[in-house]
Simulated scan of single mutants.
Amino acid sequence: MTTDFRTPALDALAKEIIPEEHFTFSAATARDRFFNDTRMLDVKQWVHNAFRTNPTSMIGHMIDHLALTGTEDLLDLGCGNGFILEDLRPHLADGSITGLDIAPAVLQAARQRLHGTATPCTWIEGSADDLSMLGDDTFDRVMANYMIHYVPDLDRCFTGVRRVMRPGGIFQLTTDRTDSMLEMYDAHFAALNAMGAPRDLFKASPKGRLSLTNGADLLGKHFERVHTVTWQDQLRFTSTEPFMRFYEVGHNHCCASSEEDERLTASFFAELRERVQAQVTAAIEARGYFAVTKYTGSFLCQ
């Protein structure tokens, strides 16, 4: 079943509020701040499972398009805490998994999550733009899920993927549209406006660096065939508490608290959360739930 949550009203709102400029963060910031533990990933993963309305999960969507037979050797770039690999592993009963991540804390979590499974697993601490430790024509499948915007050198990363991927293999890169989770950004920007916040906080998701909009052109420089498959979901919250955890911990207040900034005090973020929560509460009272629409998908590259 194909689910379409897009409406003309949401498309018009996206054009009105989503800025052209997006946040950018270094790999070091991702390693040392975002993923120095698993909290951010844990909250996002819990929310996307607990509050989704699409009966097909995003992981199910990924697995469908990887076209696994069970014997493939798979490389997961930015494997995080192994949440996706845990569901994918039974589809590789006679294959192998190699997980690479720049952050030791989440890599250890992945190692523990898949410890003792029959599928052989190898774990590598490193950056996705340096695959020099891996041999040519080593993998049948390569994945990069929601992490490519942190990679310092994209051209070097994609060149490395081509080298380590066997002929006929598939590179699956999953990312968002820049207007994904539009309702959350709408509430966030409205609160910032009411507070007279610094204008440099009004930026789109860092996934704008390589989104579903611009990714095909970037990948087309390195792969002969780039096919885009899309997936939608709508998270629906009938209580403000889980949404606020998603907003504050899972997304660092839409990236506003991602890096230290002496202008942004604890009281600033307390007021920001109060204003966002008030909007979410009003939406729940009016409609019965607060919706966050997810526009995402994958590039399948060969």
Rank of each mutant, 00 (worst) to 15 (best):
D94W: 04
T175H: 12
A216D: 09
I59M: 12
F171N: 14
L74W: 03
A266W: 06
G70E: 09
Q277S: 13
R39G: 09
V280Q: 13
G60H: 09
F158E: 00
D137H: 08
Y185L: 05
I102C: 01
V280T: 06
L218E: 13
A204N: 15
T56F: 01
E262S: 15
E260A: 07
T228Y: 01
I170H: 08
F23S: 06
Q172D: 01
F83V: 11
S180H: 15
L182N: 00
G135H: 02
Q112D: 14
R273A: 14
S180M: 07
I148K: 00
G60R: 11
I170Y: 01
T293E: 04
G80Q: 06
F171R: 02
I17V: 03
T138L: 05
A27I: 04
T296H: 14
A256G: 06
N193H: 15
F246W: 13
L131W: 00
W231E: 02
H222R: 02
T7G: 12
E20S: 07
L107G: 10
L114F: 14
E241H: 04
T138E: 12
D186I: 00
Q172Y: 06
K15V: 12
G169Y: 03
E248T: 15
T38I: 05
T24Q: 10
R245D: 15
P8D: 10
W46C: 08
V142C: 15
D101V: 04
I284T: 04
T7W: 13
V151T: 14
H188V: 05
L41V: 07
A266Y: 03
F299P: 00
R245V: 02
D137N: 14
Q234D: 11
S127T: 15
